[in-house]
Design a binder for these strands. Structure first.
Length: 559
RNA sequence: UGGGGUGUAGCCAAGUGGUAAGGCACCGGAUUUUGAUUCCGGCAUUCCCAGGUUCGAAUCCUGGCACCCCAGCCA
């Protein structure tokens, strides 16, 4: 992590500091993270979690985890428990501050009654369609509902009968009475309650009217004593309504909303609708598919939570449109993993090497460091014999100038083992390289030549006799376009990267890797960071590549 | 063409009238039994544009331009 860097000073931090300096919050500050339980949390939510929980921690305040569950049509307990798990995984603790907006339904109803009594809300019998057409447009004002001037008594009666289930779904709504000609469309008599005969995951069949977001949110904030209600920029226009609600009922506190820009990450999409589509159309294996930008996907991919928290700190909090390059996240993952993760050998695309002058029945083992820069991670033994596997990429018959791996007549170091020289190449019937023959120099045990000759190339390897097969999955971005655009009519296949997941069924792994437990992470030397998948077994180990190593050769080769 | 926002390097981002931090990326170079890591060095005479105020402007004023959000009984 970046303890060396001072916490960046963003505008919300400054705002809170100024409020504290002015002694506006003698009881301390309170924030909340308010997800709707209608999907899994993604990297965009992580930004909000780090902001809300982080700022509370930093200023010795409190942060609520509040499920914003006012729409029973799309919410479920599965999502509730997944969200809780993800928040904890990131390292945040809501202690005794777990809430649901639905916990407040009765109080909310009371506030609605207050509004009606004061003449600030009315029951409207217009259909959804009629409301839409009378709302006006961006440039023209709307017109008043014919039901706008009902008496408070009639409204009270109607609203209570709405609650009692006397009316059909969609037949009536409770609306705020504000201003149908407001240039801010959110103020054109917005709906506050709608009728929905749907079992709610928390309140069951207790209610058939459900409050809307714009009514619920400010009041939930007030009930919890939230001082700083932080949300994303698309709610900016809603702020006028947020304030209106708080100013027209006897709210127990006066919270204020501040908006920041939402995160978008190159090559990924954080729209719940599209993520849901990817899952339901089985483009991915589930919400926790390692290609998903969900927290559960990134966890399965092998991203440590500290990397995500670090990332959220690095990108900052502003009101600018934020489109962050993938390399920032990848760098955070590498930086989190590199110092702590043990190294191991694995060959993804095996090429057989026979050491011609190494006795057929001989075996030995070499001591390998688990971490080149940290002896405390210990060492392990790696077996060696006459037949090995090396990476196909590490051999070229006609190499370009800068290539310093194995080639006919060239000498390379087998890491921790011997220097070997390629003496012959055997081709299959199609002319492809099928096997490479080498000789080894017995004087170079461990990898150094007594005569001091320099060998530029060092490659990894695995003993053919001792290696085990494993499944290895390599990932690329799910989308082709750095800024994926989509609409519901789009054929997903057209925008998806066909190589987003490449599965290698018969990678060769060194013996020490066989018993690795799900969740364990390793650096496969020269290949990247790999994490054991939850489905892995000793019979069929499964590794996911979290991220590759930085690869200068790839760049040299491509130029 | 209504309302609300935002413009600082390829991508993020500090900067709050005193002469452009930092990260990522990129480009060198050193060390290296991972073409990794680490280390050193480079990378905005200029802050969307044009005027103006000022000894002095990314910061203040005026006028443009570009982009984003809003017309769910979603959140």
């Amino acid at each position: 992590m970046n303890e060396n860097h001072a916490a960046p000073s963003h505008f919300i931090r400054q705002l809170i500091q100024a409020d504290l300096d002015a002694n506006r919050h003698p009881q301390g500050i309170t924030t909340r993270f308010p997800p709707e339980p209608n999907g899994y949390l993604h990297i965009g939510h992580a930004k909000s979690i780090c902001l809300n929980f982080g700022i509370a921690r930093e200023f010795s305040g409190r942060c609520f985890l509040r499920f914003d569950d006012t729409n029973p049509d799309r919410e479920s307990p599965e999502f509730v428990s997944a969200i809780k798990q993800d928040v904890q995984w990131l390292g945040f603790d809501w202690e005794d501050r777990l809430r649901h907006a639905s916990d407040y339904f009765e109080q909310l109803y009371g506030f609605a009654v207050e509004l009606i009594k004061a003449g600030h809300a009315f029951v409207c019998d217009l259909s959804a369609e009629e409301i839409r057409t009378t709302r006006g447009t961006l440039t023209t004002p709307g017109s008043n509902s014919p039901f706008r001037d009902r008496s408070a008594e009639e409204n009270l009666d109607l609203f209570s009968r709405m609650r009692d289930g006397e009316f059909a779904e969609g037949s009536r709504v409770l609306r705020a009475k504000i201003d149908m000609s407001s240039p801010n469309i959110h103020l054109r008599d917005p709906a506050l309650y709608r009728i929905r005969y749907q079992t709610h995951h928390n309140t069951g069949d207790q209610w058939c009217i459900y409050p809307m977001y714009d009514f619920t949110h400010p009041l939930s904030d007030a009930i919890e004593g939230v001082t700083h209600s932080l949300c994303t920029l698309e709610f900016e226009d809603n702020r006028a309504l947020y304030d209106w609600v708080l100013e027209h009922v006897s709210a127990p506190a006066r919270p204020y909303q501040t908006e920041f820009s939402r995160l978008s990450l190159e090559y990924t999409v954080v729209s719940k609708r599209l993520l849901t589509a990817l899952v339901s159309q089985q483009v991915v294996s589930g919400w926790d598919d390692p290609r998903m930008p969900t927290l559960s996907g990134m966890r399965r991919r092998g991203f440590p939570p500290e990397a995500i928290v670090d990332f959220c700190g690095r990108i900052g909090v502003t009101r600018n449109q934020q489109n962050v390059e993938l390399s920032v996240l990848e760098n955070c993952v590498r930086e989190a993993l590199d110092p702590s993760v043990p190294r191991a050998f694995s060959v993804l695309r095996p090429l057989k090497v026979v050491i011609e002058n190494y006795p057929d029945d001989q075996e030995e083992h070499f001591v390998a460091q688990n971490h080149p820069n940290d002896a405390s991670l210990g060492e392990r033994h790696v077996p060696f014999c006459r037949e090995l596997f090396i990476e196909q990429d590490d051999f070229m018959e006609n190499p370009p100038g800068k290539f310093f791996r194995l080639a006919p007549g060239r000498e390379v170091r087998l890491r921790y083992a011997y220097l070997v020289t390629c003496t012959d190449v055997i081709h299959d019937e199609n002319g492809n390289v099928a096997e490479v023959r080498c000789t080894y120099d017995p004087e170079t045990r461990g990898g150094n030549a007594p005569d001091g000759r320099k060998v530029k190339g060092t490659i990894h390897w695995v003993s053919a006799k001792h290696a085990q097969d494993a499944t290895v999955r390599l990932y690329e971005p799910l989308f082709n376009d750095p800024e994926p655009k989509f609409s519901s009519e789009d054929n997903l296949a057209d925008i998806l990267n066909p190589n987003s997941c490449v599965t290698i069924e018969q990678a060769k792994i060194e013996p020490s890797l066989v018993s690795a437990k799900p969740g364990a992470c390793f650096q496969f030397e020269r290949l990247g960071y790999f994490c054991v998948d939850p489905t892995s077994t000793e019979v069929t180990p499964v590794f996911n590549r979290a991220v590759s190593l930085r690869d200068t050769w790839q760049r040299v080769k491509n130029q």
